[in-house]
Design a binder for these strands. Structure first.
Lengths: 332, 332
DNA sequence: TGCCTTTCTGTAAGCGCTTACACAACTGAT
DNA sequence: ATCAGTTGTGTAAGCGCTTACAGAAAGGCA
């Protein structure tokens, strides 16, 4: 930064405190004095240093967000909602992806040093570091994670919608099911979805893992599954990406969806809508999730609230062609 | 921040300069002294303040990125590539979306105060502000924008691939074309695509605008177009989202793609691959774009280079079912 | 005119860290 | 033992900004 507040003060013939007051409106400044200051600011094209302001104020006016990675539309949509609200609240957004990164501790610590609060996806920050951030009284909002003492959590509803999905599939007459994309951790989103469908389908459904929740891994696992002698009538997938992989496998093996095999997803990402057949899925209010997280974090940062909230946003069963024929087909 | 370097120094019985040297490895420190310092750091759980470090060093160790918005997978993929390389280079990433925002000047200025350099998509930052950032010697890399003096630009190739696409469509035997999603600005990416196809197809193709480059607007424009008496044989779309909209319109009007109408896109986003028929498109190396931008910016920030570069990354024609039948169908 | 109140302004002390420079201590060679 | 060179350490000056507090100036009223 070239120009400092000292040069502005010199040019305007006032003290730096007066420059600060004139620019920030934090105290009385005579109209004539203000004019002199603003004139000097314009002539010198002065912009206050973000660093100086933050250090002196003791606040960053920025929010952090930690996610596994951006691959997959789910995270993007949440980020979009988050960034929009953060910006409205006058905060910058600093992002960090942790997947495949070494030194996650250092990365998160560095991030924490730049922001006034953090939104964290699931378990992307190690638990010991979470404990330390809590100890440091860093405002935290967790998304897609089971309730955690001392921090806000925010997630989409899984169990009820999973049950509704399972019941809908029973209504189509299917009797043999596979849950593709077995949960990795107890209590996370996918585990809740699994528990939900299993509570309805019981022993009629078994879980098959995919190493990751991606199209490619979903495709591989589905191809193996569909080549086996005892094929399910319907595959309930952990998420839309795995479901898209299952659709590809079915297509390749010449299985007609939904006539020979039904497939469902979760999330309602763009590609789910444009696949053919279009995927039946559960719509997650992803942008709303991000927006709500940013608002919750604001409350914690400003001290408007200091007791943790645990929010669950409703999800919605979206019927499309992939699970079977419906009397009145979805328009889009 | 609770613990400062002064408390560490007091606990270790050394000066703050020694603490700094021991932690940063910037000068000689006796082994015994280093141990004392590290012990104090551990006991007090000291983390250096990012603000203090940045102010004293005169550098942020962070990169900024300005984009219109995150809606649409293109920007996300670029961001992903950017963030990955930035992190490898030890930098945080601060994001800003400008679409629909008031006070863009202030937002960009604030962002500039937090980072060592900026990557900017196209024209998302007003030209007068760009000029000011250049004057301030803020390192800048522009993506998807015509070459600009004094700053790096980086874009994907448009014209050659557009010509290859047009020639491929001619090879299918089509003779009446529409370019859906007319360029908004001369010289931008879509304009180059339009110029490319027009240089091959001449008066056989006309441009039809869509208000925005989104699925919804593409759908509306395509529906209007396909209802008119003189229907094109092939629609060349500005990008994949508009093309997905055109596919929806064709489906709704009962037009078989590609038998009755061919459709092509641009970008090769996920949904383009999963649509049915799968979209013929031009693959943009979006992650590579982001990664290269981060590297170029690093060179500018570190002073490894001070003359602007203008890079063009190659794109690739991806043949799928939407433009017609090919002797050997694409596997996926 | 004098007193009181309000408005305005400047000084100094931080916020947390880095590091140039001066000096001390140590080591090795003569 | 002395000298020269190297290693190690502390002090002080910043980096850029905010603001509490003290004092000055201005205005209004008796």
């Amino acid at each position: 930064m070239d120009v400092t507040i000292y040069e502005v003060a010199r040019r305007a013939g006032v003290s730096i405190a007066t420059v600060s007051r004139a620019l920030r409106g934090t105290g009385p400044v005579a109209p004539k004095t203000r004019e002199k200051v603003l004139k000097a600011v314009e002539e010198l094209r002065f912009t206050p240093s973000r660093l100086g302001v933050s250090l002196a104020e003791g606040r960053h006016a920025a929010n952090g967000i930690v996610f596994p990675n951006l691959a997959g539309p789910y995270y993007t949509e949440v980020l979009l909602g988050y960034e929009e609200v953060a910006s409205e609240l006058g905060r910058s957004v600093v992002i960090l992806s942790t997947k495949g990164r070494s030194r996650v501790h250092d990365l998160v610590k560095d991030l924490a040093g730049r922001v006034d609060g953090l939104m964290v996806f699931g378990h992307t920050v190690p638990d010991d570091l979470v404990a330390e951030l809590v100890r440091m009284r860093m405002p935290l909002v967790f998304v897609s994670r089971e309730p955690l003492p001392g921090a806000d959590t925010l997630r989409s509803e899984n169990t009820t919608s999973a049950r509704a999905l399972a019941e809908h599939l029973l209504g189509h007459g299917y009797r043999r099911f596979t849950f593709l994309g077995a949960p990795i951790a107890t209590g996370d989103d996918v585990d809740e979805r699994w528990q939900g469908v299993r509570s309805v389908l019981g022993t009629a459904i078994e879980a098959v893992p995919t190493e990751h929740y991606t199209v490619e891994y979903g495709y591989q696992a589905a191809k193996t599954l569909l080549r086996a002698p005892a094929r399910p009538e319907a595959i309930v997938c952990s998420d839309d990406e795995v479901a898209l992989g299952a659709l590809l496998a079915a297509e390749e093996l010449g299985l007609a969806v939904p006539d020979e095999l039904a497939v469902t997803g979760w999330d309602d990402i763009m590609a789910a809508r444009h696949a053919r057949p279009a995927l039946t899925t559960i719509r997650q209010p992803m942008r709303e999730l991000g927006a709500r997280a940013a608002r919750a974090l604001d409350e914690l940062i400003t001290g408007a609230r200091d007791t943790p909230n645990h929010l669950v946003l409703t999800t919605e069963l979206v019927l499309r062609a992939s699970c079977g024929h419906h009397p009145q087909e979805e328009p889009k």
